[in-house]
Design a protein around this nucleic acid. Sequence first.
RNA 1: GCCCCCAUCGUCUAGCGGCCUAGGACACCGGCCUUUCACGCCGGCAGCACGGGUUCGAAUCCCGUUGGGGGUGCCA
Length: 435
Amino acid sequence: MSSIRLRFAPAPTGSLHLGSARTALFNWLVARGSGGELILRVEDTNAELSKPELIDNIYRSLDWLEIDFDGEPVRQSQRADLYDDAVEQWISAGVAYEDEGAIRFRVPQDGTTSWDDQIRGAVVFENQHIEDFVVRRADGTATFFTANAVDDLDLGITHVVRGEDLVNVTPKVILLREALGESAPLKFAHLPLIINEQRKKLSKRRDDVALEAYRERGILPTAMVNYLALLGWGPKDDVEVRPISEIIEMFDIADVNPSAAMFDVKKLEAINGEYIRALSPEEFGKSIAPWLEEEDWAGNVDDEVLRQVAPLVQERTRVLAEAPKQLDFFFWDNQEMDSDAWQKVMLKDSARSILEAARSVLADVEWNVEALHEAVRKIAESHELKLGKAQAPIRVAITGRTVGPPLFESMYFLGREVVVERLGNALQKLVEAQR
RNA sequence: GCCCCCAUCGUCUAGCGGCCUAGGACACCGGCCUUUCACGCCGGCAGCACGGGUUCGAAUCCCGUUGGGGGUGCCA
């Protein structure tokens, strides 16, 4: 058995929570950085919690983050006998007693229970403030405290890394372990909470706490892990975005900041953007595929065109879910026109004249990016406009929007026929509107 | 109410007694680049909650105040 053993012990209450993911990550960092072992222990002492789909979600999420475990997962729902034995042991030792069918642990009325937290230092509770707590429910099932203490002992856990919201249960678990004759005290590290803008613990009701929600929006797992590592911890050399292998090497649980950390989606997305830009074109193409498939123009996507056009949007993408709207005009059947965009540029005096000039010049200009660029540049010149201004109506006519990938590259890949047709359509719409 | 924890720019952090007129990142604001938007680059704004100690010297150590948070289930 390895000298360092940790466990990640989620209760399968739904989709994996961001805070749980961070706890899993920090446990994993300690294990992988120390040559220790990490066990996955599912805390499904409560019957409703052992639903297969809930447990699957945990596996899927952890797998997505590439947080791996040693050995098979342990299910508390299958270890009732062990908990029973412990409770019987406490009863016969006189430290637990029956109360309305449940069994309570008798907490000493004097003295203190304390531990040296790796993140917070000494934490001390006076025993008189700890109430006698239930270790076995009237229905015969073990409570969290019992399962926790028994399993940590039985599995040879040496280090417990968990959220700060569990600080107050720690003295109870320590008492239970002592009553079981523990051979060595656990090393505890209570992680700071992840909080929202209101500086409150992330809540399921009002915050996006499901890890899956971020996956669905197109956050890369590597970016998520990197960002999560930065919540409560920071590298001493100030390089925040870096491979997980380096983080494993630099990470030390004792360096973790004890104060709560706000979850900042903007920063997550900024980091995600960096990871997206660092992808190879092939990887990027594969990454956005699931999002493109959901579009109604998905059937029109030409893989070769997509391959050439994807790099144009890669550096403009912060979350993968944004990719379709940057690429749609390459593939749609019925062109959509953003009305704000139309209002903004097509109502200008020069718009009609620019579109007319573009339609006629582009009808037989040489079809390459440089020539297209030059052609539009000349139109701009003749209208005494900067290229940036002059290309606006052309962009809107062709892409339906005021912003998007570089225009001349886009026109080039779209092809002469489509470009001229869209310019014509826009012109017609403009003329009709002016009548 | 009681118990426990926390306190460096708006946010995440570096700092673990002198290297700090406090560094980085995100956000924000200027500028450059430029075919839009981005990217990139340059610059700016902005912080040690307060009060006492300890010390030659405190963001760093101690105490208090204030403020915030967590817990207080036969949930986990």
